[in-house]
Amino acid sequence: MFVVRTSGRSAAVDDDRREFSLLGKRQLSGLALARPVTTGVRSRAVLELQQNQGRARFRALVGGEFVPGEGDRLSWRVRHWETVRPTPQQGLLRGALLPGLPEGLDHAAEAGLHADLSSGALPAGRLVIDRAGYDQESSPVLFATAAELLLHILLAGAFGSPAEPVIRSWVAAGRIPVALTRVDIEA
């Protein structure tokens, strides 16, 4: 597991956390234009972000998988949780989260992927977000950021690039620099 912390923000990345699986049948999905790839391996990761603002501590956990594929399309899917009473699970950072991606946060996760999906610069293959965790303080903005960061972590893993610069940049500055995201997408 990889963890980066400052007083205002924290991020942790791990290979997988099955206890945060999204098993519901509902999902957002689609196809996006993509560039053909000739190399790459399956990549899976889980990311938890925490951002402190005053006395509030916002958290978001997302995880998924990217599998490079042939052709000029990227198939993507964001799954939902449909259980009424999920059991709290220990997150990657301190504290428990409820497994799931409730309505509102699911659309935020999709929104975090939207700019990259619309660019046509992502590699062809299959992207799925199928892990998530939230709490009472979870915000749609942080879920959108988490989904965007997760995409770059998955691409880095698939094409042998380090993900740490993107994570460290977000923890230090609260944003993902364009220069770093282009490196991941062009890997």
Rank of each mutant, 00 (worst) to 15 (best):
M1A: 13
F2I: 00
R5C: 06
G8V: 11
R9F: 07
A12V: 03
S21H: 10
Q27M: 14
S29Q: 12
S29K: 09
A34I: 13
V41N: 15
V46A: 02
V46S: 01
L47I: 07
E48F: 07
E48R: 04
L49V: 02
Q51V: 05
N52S: 15
A56C: 11
A56G: 12
R57E: 15
A60I: 10
E65Q: 07
P68W: 03
P68Q: 05
G69P: 05
G71C: 04
H80T: 00
H80D: 09
R85P: 03
P88F: 03
L92T: 01
L92P: 05
L92N: 06
L93M: 08
P99S: 00
G100E: 11
E103V: 15
D106E: 07
A109V: 10
L113P: 02
A115Q: 12
D116C: 11
D116R: 15
S119K: 02
A121W: 14
A121H: 14
L122D: 05
R126G: 12
L127P: 05
L127Q: 00
I129Q: 00
E137F: 09
S138C: 10
P140A: 08
L142M: 06
F143W: 00
A144F: 09
T145I: 05
L150F: 04
L155S: 08
L155A: 10
G157M: 04
G157L: 05
F159W: 15
G160Y: 14
S161H: 11
S161A: 14
A163T: 05
I167E: 00
R168Y: 07
R168D: 15
R168W: 10
A172V: 08
A173L: 06
R175D: 09
I176R: 02
A179E: 08
L180P: 07
E186S: 14
A187V: 09
A187E: 12
